[in-house]
Amino acid sequence: MKVSKRVSKREEEYLETMYLLHKNKGVIRVKDIAKIMNVKPPSVVDALKKLAEKGLVEYEKYDRILLTEEGERIAKETYSKHLALTKFFVDILGIPEEIAEQDACQFEHYVSEITVERMKEFAKFIQEQCPYVLKQFLKEKREKK
């Protein structure tokens, strides 16, 4: 099975959703993917077919759905970015959690791994070296709500 290097933002979203379903429920079902992604089941089936052609999922109609090693790698990478971005937005920038989650969902598909790592390093640095300045910044942002 040929693995394509080109994975769209939407395909990353599908892979991430499947990864989280498997992690939390132990099983990946079309109806669960459809519900989470707010799409109709036929759209999920079409996406699964494309992802299977790219070697990112194992999917046969009416059979179990599994992420391949490469599909899981992409999903974990995307989810890891999501978590790091959300944490940065909330802890360092003082963005409300709901907004931070939404923004992270968008950013995770476009930001490089090096940028995420640098954000983590910056967050650690500012929290350790300038905790008072960070607390003052966050206090001011929360007061402006």
Rank of each mutant, 00 (worst) to 15 (best):
L15F: 02
M18F: 10
Y19R: 11
Y19K: 12
Y19T: 10
L20F: 13
H22L: 13
K23E: 11
K25M: 14
G26L: 10
G26W: 12
G26E: 14
I28H: 02
K31C: 02
D32N: 08
D32L: 02
I33W: 00
A34L: 07
A34T: 04
A34F: 03
K35T: 04
K35E: 10
I36M: 09
I36P: 01
I36G: 05
V39H: 04
K40E: 14
P41G: 05
P41H: 04
V45G: 06
V45W: 05
D46G: 04
D46H: 09
A47F: 00
A47D: 00
K49W: 08
K49R: 13
K50G: 04
E53W: 11
K54R: 13
G55A: 11
G55M: 08
V57G: 00
E58F: 02
E58M: 07
Y59K: 05
K61W: 12
Y62R: 15
D63Q: 15
R64D: 15
I65D: 00
I65R: 00
E69W: 15
E70M: 13
E72M: 15
I74E: 08
K76L: 10
E77V: 11
Y79R: 13
S80P: 06
H82R: 14
H82D: 12
L83C: 03
L85T: 04
T86R: 00
T86H: 02
K87I: 03
F89W: 04
F89Q: 01
V90H: 07
D91M: 06
I92D: 00
G94M: 05
G94Q: 03
G94I: 05
I95C: 04
E97L: 11
E97P: 11
E97N: 09
Q102S: 14
Q102A: 14
Q102D: 13
D103K: 07
D103G: 10
D103W: 09
Q106R: 06
E108C: 08
H109W: 09
Y110P: 07
Y110N: 11
V111S: 07
S112T: 10
E113K: 13
I114F: 15
